[in-house]
């Protein structure tokens, strides 16, 4: 199995690791049994994602995709984050081994889970906007 240099670079120096106190949206996806958990924190101001942080338990690709996903949405309007696909994350990382593609799906879902939380806190039904995010008990390797 081979990781691209970009993946290794993001693994070695992950961007935006940590937590945000008083975040406007927090989402967590994955579970311990499957071996990947991602937790995203968003700070949103006037529809713009002003800050984003993550914590990840998982393989190298999970760390790299979380890191890349946060980079891709930081400073961007919420609408852009809603449109972020796992494919875009994979491309930004110069590809992922097939067996690791599910990590990129998890990164996309972690952002969606955080946005779901954000809308809920606003008293807005998130489902029409964000769609349905699989819950933590979903089967491994989605």
């Amino acid at each position: 199995m081979i990781y691209s240099e970009k993946v290794m670079e993001h693994f070695a120096n992950p961007r935006n690791v940590g937590e945000i106190e008083n975040a406007d949206g927090v989402g967590e996806v994955g579970n311990a049994k499957c071996g990947d958990i991602m937790k995203m924190y968003l700070k949103i101001d006037g529809g713009i994602i002003t800050d984003v942080k993550f914590k990840t338990f998982g393989c190298g690709a999970a760390v790299a995709t979380s890191s890349m996903a946060t980079e891709l949405i930081k400073g961007k309007p919420v609408e852009d984050a809603l449109k972020l696909t796992n494919k875009a994350v994979v491309e930004a990382l110069d590809g992922l081994p097939t067996v690791k593609l599910h990590c990129s799906v998890l990164a996309e879902q972690a952002i969606k889970a955080a946005l779901t939380d954000y809308y809920k806190r606003q008293g807005i039904d998130p489902e029409p906007i964000v769609g349905k995010v699989p819950d933590r008990e979903a089967s491994c390797g989605i």
């Binding site: 199995m1 290794m8 693994f11 070695a12 499957c34 071996g35 990947d36 338990f57 998982g58 393989c59 190298g60 690709a61 999970a62 760390v63 067996v99 690791k100 491994c140 390797g141």
Partner: peptide
């Protein structure tokens, strides 16, 4: 609380070559 492949990759960055029984490294789920 940690995952084996990440541990191996981090150790690799420090020049240590080891292995793990995590799903990530077993190539299965």
């Amino acid at each position: 609380g940690i995952e084996g492949e990440s541990l191996l990759l981090s150790l690799d960055l420090a020049g240590i070559f080891a292995s793990s029984g995590s799903a990530c490294t077993s190539g299965s789920l």
